[in-house]
């Protein structure tokens, strides 16, 4: 395999006395779709917060493209090409869908401190925003307020916002949570299509999604990686079956 794009080394995070992440070791390779699964409270979301800079680790190292990022602010990590979505939809609810996405697209064009030019005079930004909206099938909703979208549309918008900065590595935190079967199928297709050529780490509870979408899977239990491997390896790993999957895989 090629060089890891993301490497976590002995990563630890405690809140006061409570250790949530207890020495995580993980390599994510360029171009793979990697799922992180684990029971509730295993620390999956915390791990995402650590990688994306939302939280600072207590100890340990995070290498992104061979450079340490664990001390960087979220925006600096983002500018190096790591984008994320959130478990709880995190958009600009009172702005239009177009506006939401345009804010995300604008960054890459380095326009954020520009106050001497009208944004409408930068057609490239609007054009790219429209293209992205089309790719997530929200073009028809572009003038709607983001807060008025359906739940799955909001999730799609959030994924589009995550993609807008053309990231190397994408973290998606439970993108399918709370979706119906049809919506989930649709979203899996969308994610597969949109993340082609990029590296993806996804936290997801829906095992059908996890096993069909990912190249490799890591199982996180009590803040430690219990096992990492292909879906087949994970399915057949006795430790995993015992600790987490149990009946679900057997059935």
């Amino acid at each position: 395999m090629n060089a890891p794009i993301l490497r976590l080394q002995n990563l630890k995070k405690s809140f006061a006395e409570t250790e949530i992440i207890r020495g995580v070791e993980l390599d994510i390779f360029q171009g793979e779709r990697h799922a992180i699964i684990g029971p509730n409270g295993a620390g999956k979301s915390t791990l995402f917060h650590l990688i994306s800079g939302n939280l600072k680790p207590t100890s340990g190292e995070i290498f992104f493209n061979a450079l340490r990022i664990e001390e960087l602010a979220p925006q600096e990590i983002n500018r190096r090409g790591l984008a994320r979505s959130f478990q709880i939809t995190n958009i600009f609810p009172k702005l239009t869908v177009f506006e939401n996405l345009r804010l995300a697209v604008m960054r890459r064009h380095g326009l954020h401190y520009t106050f001497w030019r009208m944004l409408s005079k930068v057609p490239l930004v609007g054009h790219e925003t429209d293209q992205l909206l089309e790719r997530v099938r929200l073009k028809a909703r572009s003038k709607t307020l983001a807060g008025e979208l359906s739940y799955s549309e909001q999730r799609a918008l959030e994924i589009a916002m995550t993609l807008a900065c053309d990231p190397l590595l994408i973290l998606l935190d439970e993108p399918m949570a709370g979706m119906s079967h049809e919506e989930t199928d649709y979203m899996v297709g969308l994610i597969r299509e949109l993340t082609a050529g990029r590296t993806l780490i996804i936290v997801e509870h829906d095992m059908d999604v996890v096993f069909s979408l990912s190249d490799r899977i890591s199982v996180l239990v009590y803040g430690q990686v219990l096992a990492t491997g292909t879906p087949e390896q994970i399915r057949n790993d006795p430790k995993v079956r015992e600790a987490y999957l149990g009946e679900e895989v057997g059935a």
Partner: peptide
């Protein structure tokens, strides 16, 4: 302007802006 549009983003959700 771009900065002016971002001003609304700041009001709506400054946390998200960081991750953009």
């Amino acid at each position: 302007t771009p900065l002016g549009r971002l001003t609304f983003g700041l009001r709506e959700n400054s946390h998200r802006l960081r991750f953009l």
